[in-house]
Design a protein around this nucleic acid. Structure first.
Length: 782
DNA sequence: AGCACGCCGACT
DNA sequence: GTCGGCGTGCTC
C-alpha cells in the first residue's frame, strides 16, 4: 500500500521569480488562478478519506500538502479538499513521500483543525465495520466522529495542561493513578438489598487498596469466574464474557440513604474502577440516557473520580458531545459512558468494553450501515485486544452463540446463590388457575389481586404492561407457540391483503393449511396487546393507594425513582422506575401479548423485559414476589420462573441452528424499489435460488399507510397532463418497496457483505434509479 | 453526488 | 443551422 512513485507535482519549488513570471504570463481569460502553492518538502503527499456519499467513491485519495499546513497536517486531522469541483470534508489518514495516482495531484484546500480526531484505532475499526455491514467508510466515520465545534475545541483544556495524563502518540501507559474520592467505608448495608460478602480488594488487579476498602468491593465475588475476569482485565489480558447479573439493588454507601442503584450498575462501576486503576481505558455502552445516568451515579459512588469519566450521548447538544469526545481523544477521560454514540469513542489504551442491555432495540444504529453495538463492540474488542463484557438481565441468542462457539465465557451466579437474591416468581397461567373456574381467564385473576393487596402492606408494587402498538402476530391456538412459515421459518402475520390467511413476513407465501409443529393444532389466533387503562382499573380496585404511571406518553413521563411507600406503579417495558429499597412485588400483565412480538427474538425479548422488572423486586426472603399473568409463550414463561435466561437462549439457539436461522446463518436484507433491489441482488453471486427469499412487499416507511393512500389517489390529483401523471403513478405503484433476504452460512458472511458492497458500488456508478438499502443481520425483522 | 463531454430532437 | 435532452465517465 505504500506509494513510492515519485510525485510529479506542478512546479514544486515556488521561486519568487516563477511566481512573477506566472503572473505576467497570465492572460486575462485566466480565472482566479492563484500562483502555485508551495508544497511541503518532506512527505508531500497526504492520503485522505473524504466524506463522499456514493459507494463507488469509497476509497482513499491522495493530495499534495501545502507547505503552510505541513506541521499540522498529521494523520487524523480534518481537512477540506477539492473533489470533482467541490470542497469536501475529509480526514488525513497517512503522510507519504509519493503517490500511486497517475494524474496530477491537487493541493489540499484547507486544514480545518490540527486536532487529530480520527485515531488509527478508530480508523481500523471503521474500516472493519464498513466491510462487515456492506457500507462505506464515509458512512461509518459520520457515526464515529461528531461534528467539530470550534469554540469547544479551544475551550476544552489540553490534556497536558490538565496534568496527569500524557496526551501523546500511541496512548498512555503513563496514566496517573486515579485519585479515589470519598473513601466511604464500603459495601455492606443491612436492610433490603442484596448484601454480598465484602471482598478483600487486594487481589483486584494489584492496585493498592485503601484501608477500609472500596465501595462494593465484593460485588464480583458471587459469580463463577467473576473475580477471575476482574483480575484478568486488570492484568491487561482480554477475556470475553457474557454476564447475567444478580437481581436487586446494591447497598448504598450511606446507611441512611436507601438503595437506588441496581446491582448491575454497581458491578460495572466496580469493574471500571479497577480497570482504570490498572492504567487502562474503559468504554461502557448502555441502551438509553437513563441507564447512562445510573452508571454515572454508580461510578461516582464506586469512587471513580468524575474528571476521568465522560458521558457520550447523542441527546446532549453538539458542543457537549464534542467536548466529551475530545476528553476521550485527548486522554483525559479514561472511562466513557454513553449510548450508541460512545461505541466509537477514541479512548486511549482501551482495556475494557462493556455492553449493557443486550437485546435492547436502541443498541442498533438506525443510520447506514446499521451496525449493532453487541457485534461492533465485539469486533472492536478483537481489533484492539481488549476485554469484553456483554451483560443483560436476559440473554439474546446472539450472546448465547458467543458462548456456544467458545468466543466468550459465561459469568453467572450459582443457582442457590441466585435463589437467595431473587424474588419468588410465579406464572399464573389459566392452567395453574383452573381451580378458580372461569375467573382463571381474567386479565388480572383474583390470586393476583390478593398478592398485590398483600404486597402493598410492605411497599410499592410494580405493574408492567406491554407497550402498545404491537403488530398483530400469529400464534398457535392450541399451544400458543409463535407460528412460523412452513417454507422458510419466517414469522407469520395476519394482514388485510392476504384475505385472512397467515402470510410469511419473509418470503410472502400464504400459509394455508398450516399445522402447528408442536401440538398439531391447525388453528391460529392473532395476538394483540391490552390497553393501558390498567392504571384506572387498579386505582378503582385499591382506593387510597396512589397509582403512578411511568411511560413515555404518560403525564409525568418516565419516572426515575419512586419512594419506598405503598403505591402502584404502572410502567411500560424500559420505563420502570427504581423503587427505593426495591419493590415488594411486580405484576407482569398480558403475558401472551408481551411474548408474541413480531420478530424471531420475541421470546427472549419478552423474558428480558420481565427479568428487568424482576430485578427491581426485593428477594423472596424479604417477601418479594413476581407474578406473570396472561398465558405467555411457554418458553419464556418457564425461563422466568426458573430465573434462567440462559435456559431459553440455549434452547432458542438450538432451534435456530436446526432451522437455518440467524445467528446460525448470516442474513442480508435488501430493501427498496422492486427493480432496483432485483438489480442489486442479481450481481451478488451468493444470492441464488437456494439462498434468496422474497421479494416480499414492505411498508414504504414508518408512515406507510398514509403514503400508500396517497399513491392510490395519486392518479386523480393530476393537474396538467393528467395522462402522464397517471402513468407515473402506475410506475410508482409498480415500483413499490420490497425486501429480499439473502441467507448464507456464517462462513460465507464476509463474502456476502463484500459482494453486496461491490454491487452497491456498481449501482451508484451506473446511477441505477430508485432507492436500495442493504442491512446485514437486521434485528428488527428477524 | 456533481459536473464534464457527447451524440440526437424542436426551436429562433 | 443552433439549444438542449440526459447517457457514460471522472473526480486525487
Amino acid at each position: 500500500m505504500t506509494a513510492t512513485a515519485p510525485i510529479k507535482p506542478q512546479q514544486q519549488a515556488a521561486e519568487p521569480a516563477l511566481l512573477g513570471l506566472d503572473a505576467v504570463q497570465a492572460p486575462v481569460t485566466r480565472k482566479r488562478q492563484a500562483g502555485p502553492v508551495p508544497i511541503a518538502a518532506h512527505l508531500p503527499v497526504a492520503r485522505v478519506v473524504l466524506d463522499l456519499q456514493p459507494a463507488h467513491l469509497d476509497r482513499a485519495f491522495d493530495y499534495l500538502v501545502p507547505a503552510a499546513m505541513d506541521a499540522d497536517c498529521q494523520p487524523g486531522v480534518r481537512i477540506k479538499a477539492r473533489f470533482g469541483g467541490r470542497d469536501v470534508d475529509g480526514f488525513v489518514v497517512e503522510r507519504l513521500d509519493g503517490s500511486d495516482h497517475d494524474g496530477q495531484l491537487q493541493p489540499l484546500r484547507r486544514l480545518v483543525s490540527g486536532e487529530r480526531v480520527l485515531t488509527p484505532e478508530v480508523l481500523a475499526l471503521a474500516r472493519a465495520v464498513a466491510a462487515r455491514y456492506a457500507g462505506t467508510l464515509a458512512d461509518v466515520l459520520r457515526l464515529a466522529i461528531p461534528p467539530r465545534h470550534a469554540r469547544t475545541e479551544k475551550a476544552v483544556p489540553d490534556a497536558v495542561a490538565d496534568g496527569g495524563v500524557v496526551a501523546d502518540g500511541a496512548g498512555s501507559g503513563a496514566v496517573a493513578a486515579v485519585p479515589l474520592l470519598a473513601e466511604v467505608a464500603g459495601g455492606v448495608g443491612d436492610d433490603g438489598g442484596p448484601v454480598v460478602a465484602a471482598m478483600d480488594g487486594s487481589d483486584a488487579g494489584g492496585s493498592d487498596t485503601a484501608a477500609g476498602g472500596k465501595p462494593w468491593a465484593g460485588l464480583w465475588t458471587p459469580y463463577v469466574g467473576g473475580e477471575a475476569f476482574l483480575s484478568r482485565v486488570c492484568a491487561g489480558q482480554h477475556p470475553k464474557a457474557v454476564w447475567t447479573p444478580l437481581p436487586g439493588l446494591a447497598p448504598s454507601s450511606d446507611p441512611d440513604r436507601p438503595a437506588t442503584l441496581p446491582v448491575w450498575a454497581a458491578s460495572i462501576a466496580v469493574l471500571a474502577r479497577e480497570t482504570v486503576a490498572a492504567g487502562l481505558g474503559v468504554i461502557i455502552l448502555a441502551p438509553d440516557a437513563r441507564d447512562v445516568s445510573r452508571l454515572v451515579e454508580a461510578l461516582t459512588e464506586a469512587g471513580v473520580d468524575g474528571t476521568v469519566t465522560a458521558t457520550l450521548t447523542a441527546e446532549a447538544g453538539p458542543a457537549v458531545r464534542y467536548a466529551d469526545f475530545l476528553k476521550a481523544s485527548r486522554g483525559q477521560a479514561r472511562v466513557v459512558v454513553g449510548t450508541r454514540a460512545a461505541m466509537f469513542a477514541p479512548v486511549r489504551n482501551l482495556g475494557l468494553i462493556v455492553c449493557w442491555g443486550d437485546g435492547e432495540q436502541t443498541l442498533a444504529e438506525p443510520h447506514a450501515p446499521y451496525p449493532q453495538a453487541r457485534d461492533l463492540l465485539a469486533l472492536r474488542s478483537d481489533l484492539e485486544q481488549t476485554a469484553y463484557l456483554l451483560g443483560s438481565p436476559g440473554r439474546t441468542v446472539h450472546a448465547q452463540a458467543m458462548l456456544a462457539d467458545g468466543w466468550a465465557r459465561e459469568i453467572v451466579a450459582p443457582r442457590d446463590l441466585l435463589r437467595s437474591f431473587a424474588p419468588r416468581v410465579r406464572a399464573l397461567t389459566s392452567e395453574a388457575l383452573a381451580p378458580e373456574g372461569p375467573a382463571a381467564y381474567a386479565r388480572i385473576p383474583s390470586t393476583a389481586w390478593r398478592a398485590v393487596r398483600d404486597a402493598l402492606t410492605r411497599g410499592p408494587v410494580l405493574v408492567q404492561v406491554p407497550r402498545t402498538g404491537y403488530v398483530p402476530m400469529v400464534a398457535c391456538a392450541g399451544c400458543r407457540e409463535v407460528a412460523a412459515c412452513p417454507a422458510c421459518h419466517g414469522p407469520l402475520a395476519l394482514t388485510d391483503a392476504a384475505g385472512g390467511l397467515p402470510q410469511c413476513r419473509w418470503c410472502g407465501r400464504l400459509a394455508g393449511g398450516w399445522q402447528c409443529p408442536h401440538c398439531r393444532a391447525t388453528q391460529v389466533r392473532a395476538v394483540t396487546v391490552g390497553s393501558a387503562r390498567t392504571a384506572e382499573e387498579l386505582g378503582r380496585a385499591f382506593p387510597g393507594v396512589p397509582v403512578r404511571v411511568s411511560s413515555s406518553t404518560s403525564a409525568a413521563g418516565i419516572l426515575d425513582v419512586v419512594p419506598a411507600r405503598p403505591a402502584i406503579v404502572v410502567a411500560t417495558p424500559g420505563a420502570e422506575p427504581v423503587a427505593e429499597g426495591g419493590y415488594a412485588a411486580a405484576l407482569l400483565l398480558d403475558a401472551a401479548a408481551a411474548s408474541a412480538g413480531v420478530g424471531l427474538s420475541a421470546a427472549t425479548e419478552a423474558l428480558r423485559r420481565w427479568l428487568t422488572a424482576a430485578h427491581l423486586v426485593v428477594p423472596a426472603s424479604a417477601g418479594g414476589q413476581v407474578l406473570l399473568v396472561g398465558d405467555g409463550a411457554p418458553g419464556p414463561t418457564a425461563a422466568l420462573v426458573a430465573v434462567n435466561p440462559g435456559l431459553l437462549a440455549s434452547r432458542e439457539l438450538d432451534d435456530r441452528i436446526h432451522l437455518d436461522l440467524p445467528p446460525a446463518v448470516r442474513v442480508a436484507a435488501v430493501t427498496g424499489n422492486r427493480d432496483a433491489v432485483a438489480a442489486v441482488v442479481a450481481r451478488v453471486a451468493l444470492a441464488d435460488a437456494t439462498t434468496t427469499l422474497g421479494p416480499v412487499d414492505v411498508e414504504p416507511d414508518a408512515r406507510g399507510a398514509s403514503s400508500r393512500a396517497l399513491s392510490r389517489v395519486g392518479g386523480r390529483v393530476g393537474t396538467a397532463g393528467g395522462e402522464t401523471q397517471q402513468v407515473q403513478q402506475a410506475a410508482l405503484f409498480e415500483d413499490a418497496p420490497v425486501r429480499v433476504a439473502v441467507r448464507v452460512p456464517q462462513v460465507d458472511g464476509d463474502q456476502l457483505a463484500r459482494q453486496l458492497r461491490a454491487s452497491m458500488a456498481v449501482r451508484s456508478a451506473k446511477r441505477e434509479p430508485g432507492k436500495v438499502r442493504v442491512q446485514l443481520d437486521p434485528e428488527e425483522l428477524l
